[in-house]
Nucleic acid binder design. Structure first.
Lengths: 250, 250
DNA sequence: GTTTGACCTTGTCGTAGCGTCAACGTTTCT
DNA sequence: AGAAACGTTGACGCTACGACAAGGTCAAAC
């Protein structure tokens, strides 16, 4: 038998056969005078064994170990481990498909509706439609959600939750829209002070004090600084005025 | 933010961040005077999006397409296709685990008990314990099973089935043992002719005529030749005598 | 006699998603 | 000031082969 016949017999490519030679999975057979490899039936038997194990999902290295060690002990352990590995993969796939289904069920197809727990409610209810500012807010909240510990997660979602309640939602949405308008505005625009005032009135006390406290905290202050760097000039000015008002409110 | 902070924030390695730059998944940020990359919050947001999509199982190429195309149409299609792909993987894993379970359930852990249908019964009942010859026979039968078409499969299993029937099994086993003994024997050993005679008596008529017919057929004759090359000198002699007896029996 | 086509040979590059050096410069802590 | 911990680019390694390239060999067709 030459290599093509062997390969066709077992259902692999000749490249695969040579690769198995290279890896030592299949012994190199004798050569004919012209240099061709000449295979015998035992080679086909070994090759078929290798393929059966490979199709079960064993790596070629594992297969070589099994073939050389040869006595059942090794094989049994490897197979058990493989089964456990496959079980893990199965669970992972199920989890992924669940998140996928959740994503696809969401009509707006926002890729961040995959978070869990109470933050999910906030993200679900935060109005993202059309508002660049709200969209970015959502992303940042999602980022914080994955980056922060469980404690910070709950406190954060508690802080934001009032803004998403049915009574407050329309206002929240309106404020987002006005923030969007300030994207290209001048810092001296009269709408800036207007918005800061309305925003200060809209924010609940807990959020206001949390914000004021954040400025002086090293960790959260860092975050706030980074956040403010994403703002346009007018938006930043509104934020500055807002902070002044919140401090006076005490 | 420098690269380490960004990476820790999102939960990846700095190598990953740089790799995403290389692939164009994440824009290269501005550099500081010392050449360090300086990240802003938006970069973290984008990176987190990439990670969420990657953890769903999208390839980085697909993610780049989704990010650049950006409008939901693309994303939806990709996710649907991904889900289908995951479904296929799930089925594949289930199938593999089933075969694994079958393997592990088999106390002897023979890696060839993974075949299906009627050949499985033959393989199950063929005595493999201890006999090198029978073991090899099993492997060859398994090889034929996977290589042959469905028609040949059934005819083959029909041919072998009588040898595994409870009445005949002890004899079959004994003959295998005697074949093993001939591995290192001389072709002139008196046991050779003995065994050939008993074997001829043991083989059912159908198998005998099939064997005789095989010799003249191009295809099966090829197989027979390859098989006989695996025999030791004494075993080959027994086979030769057997064929003569079978032909005389007509 | 030669040309075609189907084989065979070795060798090298490419794949996906980074991990892991190497060899070097910068910042920061002590 | 020296060490530790960062940053930079560049290159190789991993899996299990596929897909070339650049040839040599062999049978059949012209």
């Amino acid at each position: 038998m030459r290599i093509g016949e062997l390969a066709a017999l077992v259902g692999v490519s000749t490249r695969t056969v040579r690769h198995y030679h290279y890896l030592g999975l299949l012994p190199e057979p004798d050569r004919l005078a012209n240099g061709y490899r000449e295979y015998r039936l035992r080679d086909a038997v070994v090759l078929a064994r290798v393929r059966r194990l490979a199709e079960l999902g064993l790596s070629l290295d594992e297969i070589r170990d099994v073939l050389t060690d040869d006595q059942g002990r090794e094989l049994r352990d490897v197979l058990l481990e493989l089964d456990a590995d496959l079980a893990r993969q199965q669970e992972a796939i199920v989890a992924r498909r669940q998140r996928l289904a959740a994503l696809l069920a969401d009509a707006e197809l926002r890729p961040d509706s995959t978070v869990s727990s109470d933050m999910a409610a906030v993200l679900r209810d935060l109005p993202a439609a059309g508002s660049k500012f709200a969209e970015f807010d959502r992303e940042v909240l999602t980022l914080i959600h994955t980056a922060a510990g469980p404690a910070d997660r709950t406190s954060f979602s508690a802080l934001f939750h009032p803004l998403t309640e049915p009574r407050a939602l329309a206002q929240t949405q309106a404020i987002y829209a006005r923030l969007d308008e300030l994207a290209d505005a001048d810092p001296g625009d009269p709408r800036v002070a207007d918005l800061a005032g309305d925003l200060a009135a809209h924010l609940p006390d807990e959020m206001a004090s949390a914000l004021v406290a954040s400025v002086d905290d090293a960790e959260t202050g860092h975050w706030l600084k980074m956040l403010s760097q994403e703002l346009s000039a007018a938006q930043y000015e509104a934020f500055r005025l807002l902070m002044i008002m919140l401090k006076e409110r005490r």
